[in-house]
Amino acid sequence: MKAEKRYRFIVHGVLILLSGVFLIPIIITVSNSFMSPFEIINRYSSTLTASNSFNAKGVMHFVQMSLIPSFVSFKQYFKLLFENPLYLGLFWNSVKITLPIVAGQLLVSVPGAYAFEQSKFKYKEAVFFIYIVVMLMPLQVVLVPNYIIADFLQIKGSYLAIILPGIFSPFGVFLIRQYLKGMPKEYIEAAKVDGAGHFTIIAQIIQPMIKSAIAALVILTFVEYWNLVDQAIVFIQDVNAEPLSAYLSRFAEGGGLDMVFAASCFYMLPTVLIFLYGQENIVEGIHLSGMK
């Protein structure tokens, strides 16, 4: 029994250590967002300044990373939100791209998945196969048809070129259908016997039962498009129209070094909140899409 205990202790130790390693980039980013802009410049600038040269080695100043700020300050956030209009503009661009996609995915996926699950159409699996093939294709491939159709519709420069393919991405239908497959058919049959129509069935039976599926879809879609980079490079030429996800990495070079951590944190906040709020759903969503 003693060996068992020690074994368990080691397992937990390894896991805690690993969790620490996984969390460090996030923790540092968060804690450093509470440093004053002055402290950030001192710690992160490569050029020597009057106040950081004491720990310079050779010709350049190296990053002095620290978990804890010397002084806790909200100045980074203040600068970011009230003194630099570019930042909020780019943040708003991300919102304008992501929210329509999430809403559209839901509207298209839930009825679509329901239809695929309920239909007795002979070739429905063959049609569904198209969804799976498209889903397996990497972004590098699907961007080409996305681009061609955007060019044809003359929406290449607008967010629609990103939003419309996002709405019709096959992932939602696939995920929701996986959930529906695991649902007992009796409920739907019973409702049908009672004379309920499809709208009633979706609204009263399906929707409450697949709440967690919907939550998982919302979270996964939101996270995916909140982090979009590739499409922005292809479709958006104007820097001011870029989503922040694509610009964030150039923030420091663009004169925003003193508030880069606050910008990073502020941008991750929506996804982290949504993740913590729907944590069980996302785990369940991944489980279920894995269980088949």
Binding site: L15, L18, S19, F22, L23, P25, I26, I28, T29, I219, V223, W226, N227, V229, L244, S245, A246, Y247, L248, S249, F251, A252, V260, F261, S264, C265, Y267, M268, T271, V272, I274, F275, Q279, I282, V283
Partner: peptide, 19 residues
């Protein structure tokens, strides 16, 4: 633990780029 290991998945790549 699962949550901790999943957390990086939801962090936008750009947010940790500077780190």
């Amino acid at each position: 633990f699962c949550l901790i290991f999943l957390l990086p998945l939801v962090i936008p790549s750009g947010s940790v780029a500077h780190f």
